[in-house]
Computed example of a mutant assay.
Amino acid sequence: MGRDSSIQVYLSEDRKEWLTDQAEAADQSRSEYCRQVITEHINEVQNEQQYRRYGVDQQIELVLDEIHDDTMTLLSNFQSETGTTLERIQRVRTIYVIALWHLLESDYPLSERKAALKRASEYADRHPGDDPVLSSVVPSGQANTDESGAEQTEATLADTTGADSE
């Protein structure tokens, strides 16, 4: 870095002598010594500012990491609790359906139960809004079950009605 401009500093006579002694000890002119001292001071201040800025960036990063970890823990707990609740609801629904099936089993002959299961499996492959009765109680846009529902229903029918007679 070259000398682009000059500055003038006023000091007491004692300070001027001290600077002259320090410059001689460093084997430099007073001007060179002052330039070195000022440059070192500027570098130190700039490094300190960069360190502070880095320190703030690092603190922000640590806070963001902590927020991320807390959020992931909360989400995991929510998913676990929700999953447990949904499993419990599904178990209760399954128990009710099986109980209803067994109650109705004695009131209806095998052919009517087969026909009812077949109609139910056909509905599983359609949108509920296609049926005039269901469309009044099921909101439009609700998802259907997949095509394997009919095959599973027919297999269930064979298992539950195999020993029955009409």
Results as ranks from 00 to 15, higher is better:
51 Y>M: 15
51 Y>D: 15
53 R>Q: 12
53 R>P: 02
55 G>K: 12
55 G>E: 06
58 Q>E: 10
60 I>Q: 14
61 E>W: 10
62 L>G: 03
63 V>M: 15
65 D>Y: 08
66 E>Q: 12
66 E>D: 12
66 E>G: 09
69 D>V: 12
70 D>F: 02
72 M>L: 14
74 L>N: 05
76 S>D: 04
78 F>P: 01
80 S>Q: 11
80 S>E: 11
80 S>M: 06
81 E>Y: 05
81 E>T: 09
81 E>N: 10
83 G>C: 04
84 T>D: 07
84 T>S: 09
84 T>W: 01
85 T>S: 08
85 T>L: 09
87 E>V: 08
89 I>S: 01
89 I>G: 00
90 Q>E: 07
95 I>R: 04
97 V>P: 00
97 V>E: 08
99 A>F: 12
100 L>I: 07
101 W>I: 11
101 W>G: 14
102 H>E: 15
102 H>Q: 14
102 H>F: 14
102 H>V: 09
104 L>A: 11
105 E>L: 09
108 Y>E: 02
109 P>M: 07
109 P>Q: 12
109 P>F: 05
110 L>N: 08
115 A>T: 08
115 A>E: 02
115 A>N: 04
116 A>K: 07
117 L>T: 01
119 R>Y: 10
120 A>R: 03
123 Y>P: 00
123 Y>F: 11
126 R>Y: 02
127 H>S: 07
127 H>C: 05
128 P>W: 00
128 P>D: 01
128 P>C: 03
130 D>G: 03
130 D>L: 05
131 D>R: 03
132 P>C: 02
133 V>P: 01
134 L>H: 01
135 S>M: 00
136 S>H: 08
137 V>Y: 07
138 V>A: 06
138 V>C: 06
139 P>W: 00
139 P>R: 03
141 G>M: 05
143 A>H: 10
143 A>L: 15
144 N>P: 02
144 N>D: 02
146 D>Q: 09
147 E>W: 15
148 S>T: 15
149 G>F: 14
150 A>R: 11
150 A>T: 11
151 E>N: 06
155 A>P: 01
155 A>L: 11
155 A>V: 04
